[in-house]
Design a protein around this nucleic acid. Structure first.
Length: 379
RNA sequence: UGGGAUAUAGCCAAGCGGUAAGGCACCAGAUUUUGAUUCUGGCAUUCACUGGUUCGAUCCCAGUUAUCCCAG
């Protein structure tokens, strides 16, 4: 009987993943990970506690309930140092450069499908499993990553930085069922967390007042907000780091003459001069581009060099895929071209590419954007 | 100091005698394993102040205060 260690988070998805595996005849063991310690990591601002028990412990208790109900053993493991070294330092460094990182993608790459995978192997597991909505097809030694059947919950985007070795011994039991079904099964099993709200916020850290949270690690420095079109000062900010390209809320500017009653959006973060550039209107030209350069690429399948490929691209989670042409360059970067304008493509975020059948075959970090052959400066 | 104009929520701004539009901002929810975006809801018992006319005033009249413009 093959042994699977399932990452149990205390939520419904991983609970049902464990249940399904057990039903399929695997020897199932649960494991609860704790990768963030608010005390140790000096996370004071923006951290909301529920009573005198921190959110991570609430989740652990939920995971314990699930394990008891399913009749499986629950292990507990901390990767606090690993998380800090591999995910959080990257996260902060990127923000300091004026970019917008995606910590959860790195968390999957370095923690869940690396540290945790090794931990599971050391505990005799043949496979690890998680409650991700994504599909892996194992063909001999090759593993292909696909979107989940539930297009609404598909999380393949977050797994786009995994490599062949990492995918090899991974199972995603939720590949072919949708969220409503997961909820239904959880209710049938009378799991205490059957109707628990989906968690959001940075994985393992949780929901926060984001700006306050960042202030723990990047001090506030007040500066000007400038209208990129007129160069007029239209407001002030607490630090360009705290904002992201395409952001609307939190700018505190409104009713300025000439804006025609339109909202303002962040279009550029000048870290060096501490100036936040904005433009008004959600359709303003400063947010658009037609070409994107992707670096730090990860190829999950064979991709020929110097050859245009028609595919779809996702530039941010839960955004509609767009038809693009991509080309893998000599230096292993990818150039993306789109016939229709792309809006608010943000450097530091991850772009991933899908074939028509839903296979995620390449991904990388958005480095820079171009319009009409000219680079659009974002920093 | 003459002459003219304007004062409506944090900001733009409609209403010009019948009991305060709209937008931006903000706040709250929804959506969401990043950050955003998006969606829904909330947001002036009160119209610079003080009197007056009127059944009734943000709207008319007088005075006060403030700001702006043109002269000087």
């Amino acid at each position: 009987m093959a042994k699977v260690i399932v990452g149990l988070s205390g939520g419904v998805d991983s609970a049902i993943a464990a249940y399904l595996l057990k039903k399929q005849g695997y020897e199932v063991v649960g494991a609860f990970m704790r990768n963030w310690d608010s005390q140790l990591n000096n996370d004071i601002l923006g951290n909301e506690w529920h009573g005198d028990i921190c959110p991570q412990e609430v989740d652990y208790n939920d995971a314990k309930d699930v394990a008891n109900k399913l009749g499986i053993k629950l292990l507990r493991v901390d990767f606090i140092k690993e998380y800090w070294d591999n995910v959080f330092t990257y996260f902060i460094d990127e923000y300091k450069k004026g970019r917008t990182p995606n910590p959860d993608i790195m968390c999957n790459k370095y923690i869940k499908f690396d540290s945790f995978l090794k931990f599971a192997k050391a505990h005799g597991a043949d496979y690890i499993a998680t409650g991700h909505y994504a599909k892996i097809v194992h063909e001999g030694d090759k593993s292909k990553l696909y979107k989940a059947s539930d297009d609404n919950k598909d999380q393949s985007y977050f797994l786009s930085f995994l490599n062949q070795d990492q995918l090899h011994d991974v199972l995603f039991p939720l590949a072919n069922i949708d969220k409503p079904t997961v909820r239904r099964i959880a209710n049938e099993l009378k799991l205490s967390i059957a109707n628990k709200k989906d968690s959001t916020g940075i994985c393992f850290i949780g929901e926060r007042n984001f700006k306050e949270f960042l202030k723990n690690y990047i001090p506030a420095t007040e500066g000007k907000i400038v209208d990129i079109k007129t160069n007029n000062v239209v407001g002030k900010h607490q630090g360009v780091y705290y904002y992201t390209i395409g952001q609307r809320r939190g700018l505190n500017i409104g009713g300025i003459k000439g804006s025609d009653g339109k909202s303002w959006f962040v279009v550029k973060k000048d870290v060096k001069n501490n100036i936040l550039y904005v433009a008004c209107g959600d359709d303003n030209e400063y947010l658009l581009c037609d070409e994107v350069l992707i670096t730090d690429c990860n190829y999950l399948d064979d991709v020929k060099l110097n050859t245009f490929i028609d595919c779809t691209a996702k530039f941010r989670y839960r955004q509609k895929d767009v038809n693009v042409k991509i080309i893998r360059n000599e230096n292993d970067t990818i150039t993306v071209k789109s016939d229709t304008p792309l809006k608010a493509v943000t450097n530091g975020q991850i772009a991933c590419f899908y074939k028509k059948d839903g296979q995620l075959f390449a991904s990388g970090i958005i480095d820079s954007i171009y319009k009409d052959g000219k680079k659009v400066e974002l920093n």
